[in-house]
């Protein structure tokens, strides 16, 4: 259903029809990158866009939250300080549980990754918000950085022995020969699955919300209550998805890191 409306929306936009679908907007319109401050360096367009603005918000909010809440650093935490401590301990616990003590030096990076995605997802759910994590290029860049970083760490720690990662432990030679290419392929596919998971979740959630919100307008005040309730429920669901996807991205990064540090 979402795909159908997506295509219909795009079609309507393409042919210049500005009716239906929430006042003439296609469900994909919300993902448009709009340059706010045009910056061109050489042949590259590095304009400050709405996407960049929401990244700035995410950074500013994090800085504000941690900056203000940990100003006093009381032994018995205030409410805001508890929030900071809770997030810190949640991610620190995750890193420690999944990568052991050696992985704790990458904790600031994983904490950054978690906060960046979490705030990006949450800010995107605000009305008029923009979800920078709903762009494949953003999630893919993060996933590739994680992939390259993990691979570099793996080779730096184990040298060529890192290739042992692709040989399942305890497997007979005959089976290992068949399994090794599969393991290698699944290793290579990691950045794809990592980036697609986040991108697809954010994209689908926002398209669904937009389509259902469009129904509220077209069905009118009386029947519109049905999609209104649905939008309400799905917004709750999306809040959950926003947190879960940030968690999943950070958790998988931890698991990949663990492979690189401990091999098996």
């Amino acid at each position: 259903m979402a795909t159908e409306n997506m295509e219909a929306g795009e079609h309507a936009e393409a042919s210049g029809h500005a009716e239906g679908h929430g006042g003439g907007h296609s469900p994909m319109e919300q993902f448009t990158i709009k340059p706010l401050i045009p910056i061109h360096i050489g042949k590259y367009d590095l304009s400050y866009t709405n996407s960049a603005m929401f990244m700035t918000f995410a950074v500013a909010l994090t800085a504000l939250l941690f900056g203000l809440s940990t100003k006093k650093r009381t032994l018995v935490p205030s409410r805001w300080q508890s929030i900071s401590e809770l997030m810190y301990e949640f991610v620190a616990g995750m890193v420690k549980d999944n990568t052991g003590k050696e992985g704790m030096k990458y904790f600031p990076f994983i904490f950054t990754l978690f906060l960046f995605i979490l705030f990006g997802n949450f800010l995107g759910l605000l009305p008029y918000g923009f979800t920078f994590t709903s762009h494949i290029i953003v999630t893919a860049t993060m996933a590739v950085v994680v992939f390259v970083g993990v691979t570099v760490i793996g080779f730096a720690r184990h040298g060529l022995h890192f290739f042992a990662l692709f040989v399942p432990p305890g497997a007979p030679l005959g089976i290992a020969i068949i399994l090794a290419p599969l393991e290698f392929f699944s290793y290579l596919i990691r950045p794809v699955s990592l980036s697609l998971r986040l991108f697809a979740n954010m994209l689908a959630g926002h398209v669904l919300l937009k389509v259902l919100a469009g129904f509220i307008i077209t069905l009118g005040v009386f029947f519109g209550i049905v999609p209104f309730v649905a939008v309400f429920g799905i917004t709750m669901l999306e809040l959950m998805v926003a947190a879960i996807q940030a968690y999943v991205f950070a958790l998988l990064t931890c698991l990949y890191l663990n492979d690189a540090i401990h091999l098996h």
Partner: peptide
């Protein structure tokens, strides 16, 4: 190009905030 550029800039900024501000402060409290 713009998205990757600003992602790198903002991610670096956030990393700086987390590594220089959030982690030391919260770590100290804990």
């Amino acid at each position: 190009a713009s998205q990757i550029f600003w992602l790198v800039v903002m991610f670096a900024a956030l990393y700086w905030v987390v590594a220089k501000l959030a982690v030391p402060r919260v770590g100290q409290v804990l």
